[in-house]
């Protein structure tokens, strides 16, 4: 996919031109690390500047997680927040000239998707132990030979769909922007700023959807446990 990005600033540095997605995701990581180290250095009761930004983001994501996952989802806030901010910055970076979105390469996306996938199963095993395997056998035990392959395929399709959705959206956006830019340059029209604004919106929506689906998968691993508990209680009550 390098042919879609003819001019890359970091591509001119020798040794960095081969895997631009890795280099540009380093840029995002460096930005995030530096800001998150600098901002808490001068915490104040009345926030201003960068502290305001981070507090607003934290509160928004935390309240949204509270609504989706409930109080049990609090330990997974760092994972979700980091994924969201990292993916949003990755998606948005493609709008700047000379930069590319690392998420327009499949490898960046599959890293994030596999992280979400492994985190889901880690949460499942952590909350219900080996009883988590009951998720895969379906409601009745003698349906297990039918249900296990279905569940395996549906669980394995999750990282694939997360990867391809993000990749296709961001690549499609970049392609549409490139085509419109070429058309506008040829016809001496102003640059397609409306499409660029829409690309910012789409970047946000895609990061949001990724994070939302991660949260729903984690909620599935948590909620099955609750359901089993209620079932046992009901059985005892009867």
């Amino acid at each position: 996919m390098e042919k879609f990005h003819p001019y890359l600033y970091f591509g001119f540095i020798p040794g960095f031109g081969e895997y631009p997605n890795v280099v540009y995701s380093w840029v995002v990581m460096a930005f995030l690390i530096v800001t998150s180290l600098l901002v808490p250095r001068a915490l104040q009761t009345i926030p201003h500047g960068g502290q305001n930004v981070f507090e607003t983001l934290f509160e928004a994501v935390a309240s949204f997680m509270e609504g989706t996952l409930g109080p049990e989802g609090k330990p997974y806030f760092p994972l979700v927040f980091t994924l969201g901010v990292y993916l949003f910055l990755n998606n948005v970076m493609g709008i700047l000239p000379g930069f590319m979105s690392p998420t327009s390469n499949v490898n960046t996306n599959i890293g994030c998707a596999l992280t979400a996938f492994l985190a889901t199963h880690y949460v499942g095993f952590k909350t219900s132990g080996w009883g988590y395997l009951k998720h895969f056998t379906g409601p009745i035990i003698w349906l297990a030979p039918l249900m296990v392959p279905l569940e395996l395929i549906s669980h394995l399709a999750r990282p694939l769909s997360l990867t391809l959705r993000l990749f296709g959206n961001i690549t499609g956006e970049d392609l549409v922007l490139a085509v419109l830019m070429l058309l506008c340059l040829q016809a001496f029209l102003p640059l397609p700023w409306a499409m660029q604004l829409f690309a910012i919106f789409g970047s946000f929506i895609q990061a949001f959807v990724f994070v939302l689906l991660t949260m729903i998968y984690i909620a599935g691993s948590l909620a099955g446990h609750e359901h089993d508990e209620h079932g046992h209680e009901g059985a005892h009550a009867h």
């Binding site: 391809l164 959705r165 296709g168 690549t171 499609g172 959807v209 939302l212 689906l213």
Partner: peptide, 27 residues
């Protein structure tokens, strides 16, 4: 409204992913 909006966005993402699969296959 809030719950509906979240569910709608999930559904839109799942619908859109099919179009995106087609786009990837076309690429």
């Amino acid at each position: 409204g809030g719950d509906l909006r979240v569910s709608m966005i999930i559904g839109l993402a799942l619908i859109e992913s099919l179009v995106i699969y087609t786009f990837v296959i076309c690429l």
